[in-house]
Amino acid sequence: MNFFRSCENANHSEEKLLRYRVGQRLVHAVLATSFLMLLFSGLMVLWPPLLLWVRSVAPDISPGLIHRIGAVLFMAVPMLYLLVDRCGARQLLVESFTYDKDDIEWLKHAWRYFMGHAVGMPPQGRLNAGQKLHHAGVVIFSATVVFSGLALWFAKGYLGPAGLALAATIHGLSMLVLTVLLVGHLYFTFVYKALSAMTTGYVPKEEAMIEHPKWVEELEHQSASGKSF
């Protein structure tokens, strides 16, 4: 079935381009939900007023349980991605860690992009260099947050003071990075009005032409040759 193997984003028109396939959107939704569960329950731990408020509205709620359910979902994301869109998963991993000359140039001018200036940035492919860095960060710090979290979850009683301190520190720092990444993520979504990519799956071709000219080119080349990979 094409749906599971192909990276083809064939359905596009003059106005709109298919940016994220349904599988990718599903994975993103699971990731976002689980991450918010984890963040929320984690914040209840860090910030007692939140805990007290939650307990006053929902006395039987267990932050620990939310955190554990969230953790299971969160850890299931890579598996889910491989299951529903193996190609997309591979593409994400490969692209996030591959940077060309344009990417380096783009990063040098990232400040401009941050301030809302997409026009005139060096030409980018499916992902711009910022997104690549973001994805790479998510991959790396998800791994550290997961492993330190697993240690805190299952190795309790065996860690000892030093092990606990290390695991908790890694867990906290990883989550800090991921949270800042999330804030940035939401920021760019807002600035470049990119939410539709994750809701409908489509982006206006016009925007894509500005931000990802190489990708649009590639898509057109693909549809011209009728080839998928």
Partner: peptide
Amino acid sequence: LEEAAAAPS
């Protein structure tokens, strides 16, 4: 706040 919050639990 805490008293009120804690009691129902």
